[in-house]
Write a protein that binds this DNA or RNA. Structure first.
Length: 216
DNA sequence: TGCCAGGCCGGGT
DNA sequence: ACCCGGCATGGC
C-alpha cells in the first residue's frame, strides 16, 4: 500500500513539466492588486483587456485611479465583467490605500495577520484576493487558494471536494516551508496546470503531466 | 449556443 | 453556520 503523493512531489512534477512561471503577470505591485480584484471569477484574458485600458490611459497608478470617477472607472474595466461591481470594489480598495497614503512599501512591512484582517475588512476583498495581494504584491509568505487549487487537490484525492478555504490553505501551508518564493511558484504552477489540463467540465487527465500521481 | 472563467456579498434558512 | 442568487464580459 503506497501513500499518496506528497506536496513537494506534486510541486516538483509541475515544475519539471512546465518550468518556472515568473508570476504574477504584472509590471508593478499596484497592477497585481488591481488584477487580483478584476480576476474574481473571471478569465485572465478579460482582465488583461481591462488592465490594458487602464495602462493606455496611464491610470495604473494608485493616486490617479483613486481620483477617477466611478462611472469612468467602470467603463474602463468593462471587459473584465461584473464591471459596475468591480468598480465599486476597486474604489473601496483605493480608499483603503489612500488611508495608507498610498505607501505600498509601508504596507508590505506590516504584520501579515493584522494586514490580512484589514484587507478582509475592505468591501469586495475576500480571502483569495487578500492572499493574492499579500503574496504577489507585498511578498508575504501566504499560500493562495483558488478554484484550481481545490480542483486539482481534490481530484488527486488529497482533500475533499467541498473543503473550505482555510482548511485547504492550511493543508498546503502547514506542509511547506513558509517561503514566499515557494508559495508564489506553487500557486502559479497550479493555475497553469488548471488552465491547461484541469478545467471544470473538460479535464484532460490523459495529457496532464500529473496523471501518474493519481496512482495510490 | 450554452457553459465557463484565478470570488464575494447580502439575505434567507 | 451554511446556502443561494446576483453580478457581466468574451472565448470556445
Amino acid at each position: 500500500m503506497k501513500r499518496g503523493p506528497r506536496l513537494m512531489d506534486l510541486y516538483r512534477a509541475m515544475l519539471d513539466a512546465l518550468g518556472p512561471s515568473r508570476w504574477w503577470p504584472a509590471d508593478t505591485p499596484f497592477e497585481v492588486m488591481v488584477g487580483a480584484i478584476l480576476t474574481q471569477n473571471t478569465s485572465w484574458a478579460n482582465v488583461a483587456k481591462a488592465l490594458d485600458n487602464l495602462r493606455s490611459a496611464d491610470l495604473l497608478d494608485p493616486a490617479r485611479l483613486h481620483g477617477l470617477e466611478l462611472d469612468e472607472l467602470a467603463e474602463r474595466i468593462r471587459p473584465a465583467g461584473y464591471f459596475r461591481l468591480k468598480a465599486q470594489r476597486l474604489k473601496h480598495y483605493l480608499d483603503f490605500l489612500a488611508q495608507a497614503d498610498f505607501d505600498l512599501t509601508a504596507l508590505a512591512e506590516r504584520d501579515t495577520l493584522a494586514l490580512r484582517e484589514d484587507l478582509l475588512a475592505v468591501r469586495g476583498i475576500g480571502p483569495e484576493t487578500a492572499d493574492s495581494i499579500l503574496l504577489y504584491a507585498l511578498g508575504h509568505p501566504v499560500f493562495v487558494v483558488d478554484a484550481y487549487t481545490r480542483r486539482i487537490a481534490s481530484r488527486h484525492g488529497l482533500v475533499p471536494e467541498d473543503i473550505d478555504y482555510h482548511e485547504l490553505q492550511s493543508f498546503f501551508a502547514d506542509a511547506l516551508d513558509p517561503d514566499p518564493g515557494l508559495f508564489n511558484e506553487y500557486h502559479a504552477l497550479l493555475v497553469r496546470v488548471g488552465h491547461t489540463w484541469c478545467k471544470k467540465t473538460k479535464p484532460d487527465c490523459v495529457a496532464c503531466p500529473l496523471g501518474p500521481l493519481l496512482e495510490t
